[in-house]
């Protein structure tokens, strides 16, 4: 329940913010930003959206930190490991080390 006492308000506010962020992401291409800025901008907004869904919709912000850490760290760390294993750079490093 938020400060106004309306237990449903958080969902409406989150919904509006998510929609605004989505529109901003869609509009970002029309600004003709350099590619690297566009990537950073989109990834940052993607993480904000993911945090809002996890925190407000899935109630992670009300759970014990241990649960949130288990979820976020588990997925993030494993994703990094997965990507490093399959990326070309990693294969090149392994080849260089083995030669």
């Amino acid at each position: 329940m938020d400060a106004t006492g309306n237990p449903y308000r958080i969902y409406r506010v989150t919904w509006i913010i998510l929609l605004i962020i989505t529109v901003a992401m869609l509009a970002s291409e029309s600004f003709h930003l350099p590619r690297i800025f566009l990537i950073v901008f989109l990834l940052a907004f993607m993480m904000v959206k993911a945090s809002m869904i996890g925190g407000n919709f899935m109630h992670l912000r009300y759970e014990r930190p241990s649960l949130a850490v288990m979820v976020a760290a588990g997925i993030l760390v494993t994703s990094l490991i997965l990507y490093s294993f399959i990326s070309r750079e990693f294969r090149h490093i392994v080849e260089r080390l083995s030669n």
Partner: peptide, 25 residues
């Protein structure tokens, strides 16, 4: 109860993490 949640909810979260790893892959 290290996560302060019922076993059903804890199991659902563990399932979500593993399913998240599928999409991560």
């Amino acid at each position: 109860s290290p996560f302060g949640a019922t076993w059903q909810k804890t199991m659902m979260w563990i399932f979500i993490v593993t399913d998240g790893l599928l999409f991560s892959g």
